[in-house]
């Protein structure tokens, strides 16, 4: 067997986690990622996690951005981190089911329910995960060094457009985020206006889908 021939059979879809506090813009980010990835020919599906509803899944199904059948909903019924870290079985089952229903799917986006700064994903569930915070949550969030901020593969600081309206020094917030993460990626986004999305998609294509 040669080095170049080591890929055989079906390669599992990459699983990409999106975590972060309530209201930080996780669903809005998914709504930006879907068309951006689709435009690049990525075959994708989405799993949303909510506490006791399927609100986010319904929002995406109604969006017209994606085949509604490609959106699955998981209800945590408890703290959201319990089903993305402690026992991610429900989400693993949901992802497996999507792969069975849509053979050839390349990427599954798993959006966590809104949680606190200690929220992290199990590597049994996701191959790569990002943590989304936003400027209106306060510019002190990065320096509080929560595990989500520190351990995520990429930290996304969203709603940059709101910085002047909520008294946030965006440059300092970004600098502190980069400092606490020791050089690991930090991306700035404004999902409302689509700013910064291309950089994240580029990173997904390179580090997750291995297209480049």
């Amino acid at each position: 067997m040669t080095v170049q021939e080591t890929i055989s059979g079906t390669v599992p879809a990459a699983r990409f986690g999106i975590g972060g506090p309530v209201g930080s813009g996780k669903t809005a980010l998914v709504e930006r990622l879907i068309p951006a990835l689709t435009a690049r020919g990525v075959d994708l599906a989405v799993i949303t996690n909510d506490l006791v509803t399927i609100e986010d899944a319904e929002r995406l199904r109604r969006s017209g951005l994606i085949d509604p059948d490609r959106v699955s909903a998981v209800e945590a019924g408890a703290c959201p981190h319990t089903i993305i870290r402690e026992d991610p079985t429900l989400n693993i089952e949901a992802a497996d089911a999507l792969e069975r229903r849509f053979p050839g799917v390349e990427l599954i986006l798993l959006e966590s329910g809104g949680d606190n700064l200690a929220s992290t994903f199990s590597l049994d569930l996701t191959d790569f995960w990002i943590f989304v915070i936003d400027v209106s949550g306060g510019d002190d969030i990065p320096r509080k060094r929560g595990p989500g901020v520190l351990k995520s593969d990429v930290l996304v600081i969203n709603k940059t457009d709101l910085a002047p309206h909520v008294g946030v020094d965006l440059a300092r917030m970004e600098a502190e985020a980069r400092a606490v993460r020791g050089g690991r990626p930090v991306l700035m986004t404004d999902c409302r206006h689509g700013e910064g999305i291309d950089a994240l998609v580029e990173l997904i294509e390179t580090q997750v889908l291995f297209r480049k």
Binding site: V11, P12, A14, I92, D96, L123, D124, D127, F128, T206, Q207, V208, F210
Partner: peptide, 21 residues
Amino acid sequence: GRKRFRLTTDRGTDCAVSIDR
């Protein structure tokens, strides 16, 4: 614990690795 990652070998080969679940 990762099932999918990208790393460079000691000889500089850029490797994109995945394994089954």
